[in-house]
Amino acid sequence: MSNLTDITPLRWLMRNPIWGFVLLVFIFFSLMSEHFFDYRNFQNILVQTSTIGLIALGMTLVMINGNIDLSVGATLALAAAFAVDVQSWAMFATWGNWQILPAVSLALLVGILMGAINGFIVWKTGVDAFIVTLGAMLGIRGLVFVYTGESSFYAMNFAYSDFSALSVGPFPVLALIFLACTLIVHLVLSRTVHGRNTYAVGGNREAAVNAGIRVGPHMMVNFMIIGFLAALSGVLLSTQMGAATPNLGRDYELWVITAVVLGGTKLTGGKGDIIGTLGGVLAIGILRNGMNLMQVPAFYVYVILGSILIAVLFLDKRFNRTANGGLRL
């Protein structure tokens, strides 16, 4: 909410328990691993987190709306494929480094388009977003394979793959992009009419309709935002790899949903914020990074994450018991 003035840090942590957790693992790994508390490592964490993090921003909007998007991993792969492939099209051969521009633009447009398709179908057919995007997850992955013919694309322009190594002063560009997007989406969600309507649509759909909010187009816009962010994430990931593989982004939807739910966004809609999501994303990033530094096999991260997700749900249920007045149902 907008009234941050009268809130003590402790109260704030109570309301955003995920940041308490982030703090805890941060301290834990700082004590346990000598390599963890290091500026370079922090840069690493931010860069590693940015891929999932960007999508999680969009997922927060979609989930506050009471929807879900399972197709983000596939959209990411499709955008990455476009971004890498288009720059080597013959028509841009003479453009030099400028060939990256149409490639990236097209990739982002494709992401927006995929989101628009999902949103439009949800709007017009009234089919649950879970089913619509489950279908899209399969279908868009199919498109990726059709487009790439099952092979990986490699970026021929070195400027492209060097991009991910760029820094502005001490800040890696990828981390900056992620943080900038976080700030923008946070402002959109908390300060603009569209953002506030996002809560209204998810919190009480009927009230939103009665108040004259056009629910269908509204949801479509949020699907387009998540499509854009998934595509952006795909582009950035492909700069890191210097390539786009057709299986890129598999299972990302599950990671993203995990991060967003950890951040306190409700699947039923109407509740959540970007600050929480950032916490959820960082929690996952720090855990993975720290355990990696401690040379704990990556496997344990899965178990710990799964357990935390369920534990969060359990605690949430314990503390926020809905008032059905003790009726045993």
């Binding site: 209204a200 004259g212 109407g270």
Partner: peptide, 13 residues
């Protein structure tokens, strides 16, 4: 809408 402020609810839409 429970998660919004009273003012936003008053002027919803």
């Amino acid at each position: 809408v429970p998660e919004m402020s009273a003012a936003e609810n008053i002027y919803l839409g």
